[in-house]
Design a protein around this nucleic acid. Sequence first.
DNA 1: TCCCTAACGCAACATCTGTAGCGTACTGAC
DNA 2: GTCAGTACGCTACAGATGTTGCGTTAGGGA
Lengths: 198, 198
Amino acid sequence: MTAMSEPADDDAPRRRTGGRSARVRSAVLQATIAQLLEVGYDRLSVHEVAAAAGVAPTTVYRRWPTRAELILAALQELSAVAIEVPDTGTLEGDLRSLIRSIAATVGQPALRPVQRSIAALPDDVAGEYRRSFWADRLDRTSAVVERAIARGELPEGTEPSHVLELLIAPIWFRLIISDTPLDDDALDRWVRAAIAAA
Amino acid sequence: MTAMSEPADDDAPRRRTGGRSARVRSAVLQATIAQLLEVGYDRLSVHEVAAAAGVAPTTVYRRWPTRAELILAALQELSAVAIEVPDTGTLEGDLRSLIRSIAATVGQPALRPVQRSIAALPDDVAGEYRRSFWADRLDRTSAVVERAIARGELPEGTEPSHVLELLIAPIWFRLIISDTPLDDDALDRWVRAAIAAA
DNA sequence: TCCCTAACGCAACATCTGTAGCGTACTGAC
DNA sequence: GTCAGTACGCTACAGATGTTGCGTTAGGGA
């Protein structure tokens, strides 16, 4: 997290981000995701990832010194997908639509190993990423709550992130912590709970 | 998860659970916890655990073939602690007391590596444990909600586990998923939310 | 106390993981 | 096109991880 994009040192090496390097990076991260999906965090082998990417193991180790850093990079790549914010005209409609689309994508059992990997990464490696990712996610969906406030469905001064956090938390609790399947009744209940809380 | 404690086979080996075996088991699991707290999931070395426990590495491998199984066993040992259920006379008082004591114990930063380990364990190893653990946890604290129903604070037919799940989920979301610190304002908000939802 | 054998220790080994040095290829600026 | 130097491939290797076989210790029933 360096604040400046241009280092102060004038003898700084000129990094190469295009061409071969870009192809290597892409291939390795893609192979990492594939391995994660297949065998999970602790059975992931850097050598096998390198082989699958058609790259020498040493190359992988040089760019991502630890497995945690490699996995983090792969996950960052994967989580860069956009999220669409619904606009149904009512808060309940919006939240219901939102939670269902989240549950549909994130609830897929095949993704569980990947999600567990994010949770497993130590704080000093992934802490900053997790915080900024969720701050961004909650911020991007805050429009739903802000429109509800404008419509008078929610009192002035309601904090959007609080509402959305309450909506989303139970999903992840079930997926990662309590290892319990999601059901539509629960989703609706959490929508009503988030509204009632605000 | 064999249903019977006594195998049907009459030539079944008579397991030895006491004496030396018990000491070895205890020492190894204790050393595992210590390692988990110190270096976390993926840097945990079975050889070092064995050394710390004063035991041969092969002994550890024989009893717990994979690191995941070893860690699971250690966590089961650790999570066997009892939870005290408050009784303040009001639902809000009870939930506030409950969430504060949970946050105080589980919120300690030093425990984060251990918690991440639970989350990291693959479903086929720890799934059954996680489900039964949380079913039990929610069941043990359900008295709080049942008393509130009896007092007329909550409508008849309210499902205790739903209320408690909603209360607890945000804690774990912050600790494991969004990596955000807990604050007292948030705890109070979640108490009110859980009540409002029911 | 005796005896059977489960559970452990030890040594030797096969495999996997990560590092270091050096030569080569490709990038990107001129 | 030219060229400096970054990023990669390759080989060799050090160390960690996990397995196998066999001898030894000690638990627990008789």
